[in-house]
């Protein structure tokens, strides 16, 4: 072995890191730009430069009121929800080594939806109570999935199939509840089910922020293990990873992220599903590409919400309509490609 060989290795490692870093910086700038634009547009348009000034403590009182009081909570909710969904999708897809395994394809968000609709329709609840039900629904669904998929450890394949099955059951429960509901209540539940950022306030931001403060350090710790888990169970065992412990920890983090995001904004479809693959393509990273996925989640939600709010004149759509229009074709592309190469994903 020569110094030259070591140099080659260090060089290759640095090249990978540099590319990721560049992508992260560019994405962060884009996300911030979209964030500012979304704060500037509305019934009363504010120049973007004034928005930036206001965010950093300048600006007059009127702008400050509009930006910080009226628009900031909604924009921040969108930002955090998107990030959470992107991260959750990246973890799920890496654990399962399958791009179909995102929380909105396997049952997690469907379970959250069924519980939330139950809360809205049957119990007549609103607001925070519905969010709480959604979180309980997501966690319970994930728990049932994990237990059913367990046979001397959890295989990714079983987890996905069982997840899709449980998703179908949860969806039919949701439909049943909706058919039993009065029309106005059903309408309210449907809006929740599409995923919307309308009327989000600081309480949403707060619960999301607390989740992030708690989960981000845990996630930073587990990412190293996720990179090993990606090599398959046997290789991971061989490298000294406690595979089941690591996988359970990662699933818990991913489920909580998806649950809290869904609780805050409803099941915004396809964000967790499309963000990580795009992130991996941009960074050319074989790893989970967590930071990039989180940023892309924020970008997708931010951009979709801008479109949903302002692209159709007077009509304002829920953000989930737009993410669905973007995400569904990608799902079809993925299934078609999986069929063609016979890889199942």
């Amino acid at each position: 072995m020569t110094a030259e060989a070591v140099h080659v290795i260090a060089q290759a490692r640095r090249a990978r890191q540099t590319r990721s870093l560049v992508v992260i910086v560019v994405l962060a700038v884009v996300v911030f730009a979209i964030f500012c634009v979304s704060l500037s547009l509305g019934d009363f348009n504010i120049p973007v430069i004034d928005v930036v000034k206001t965010l950093f403590g300048g600006g007059d009182r009127a702008t400050e009121f509009i930006v910080n009081r009226l628009r900031l909570p909604r924009a921040l909710t969108g930002l955090l929800v998107g990030t959470a969904l992107g991260l959750s999708g990246a973890i799920f897809q890496s654990i399962a080594r399958n791009p179909l395994a995102s929380p909105d394809i396997i049952g997690v968000t469907y379970g959250a939806s069924a519980f939330a609709v139950f809360a809205i329709v049957t119990l007549g609840l609103t607001g925070v109570a519905v969010s709480a039900f959604a979180i309980v629904g997501a966690v319970l669904t994930a728990f049932i999935m994990y237990v059913l998929a367990w046979r001397h450890g959890v295989s990714s394949y079983r987890l996905i199939l069982i997840g899709i099955g449980i998703g179908a059951i949860a969806t039919s429960i949701t439909s049943y509840l909706l058919t039993k509901a009065r029309v106005e209540i059903a309408q309210q539940a449907l809006i929740w089910l599409t995923g919307s950022l309308n009327g989000r306030d600081w309480s949403n931001v707060r619960s999301l922020a607390i989740t992030f403060v708690v989960l981000l350090p845990v996630m930073a710790f587990l990412v190293r293990q996720l990179r090993i888990l990606q090599l398959g169970d046997e290789t991971a065992y061989g490298l000294g990873l406690r595979v089941e412990v690591a996988r359970l920890g990662l699933i818990v983090v991913a489920v909580l992220l998806a649950a809290v995001a869904t609780a805050a904004a409803g099941p915004i479809g396809f964000v967790a599903f499309v963000a990580p693959p795009i992130a991996r393509r941009l960074t050319r990273s074989p790893g989970p590409a967590m930071i990039t996925s989180g940023l892309l989640g924020a970008l997708v939600v931010g951009l979709s919400d801008l479109v949903a709010q302002h692209a159709f004149g007077e009509t304002q759509l829920p953000v989930g309509v737009v993410t669905g229009v973007v995400g569904a074709p990608y799902l079809m592309f993925l299934l078609a490609r999986a069929n063609r190469v016979g890889s199942g994903g």
Partner: peptide, 8 residues
Amino acid sequence: PTAPEGIT
């Protein structure tokens, strides 16, 4: 053994 797509 399986490796993630695109790993160098």
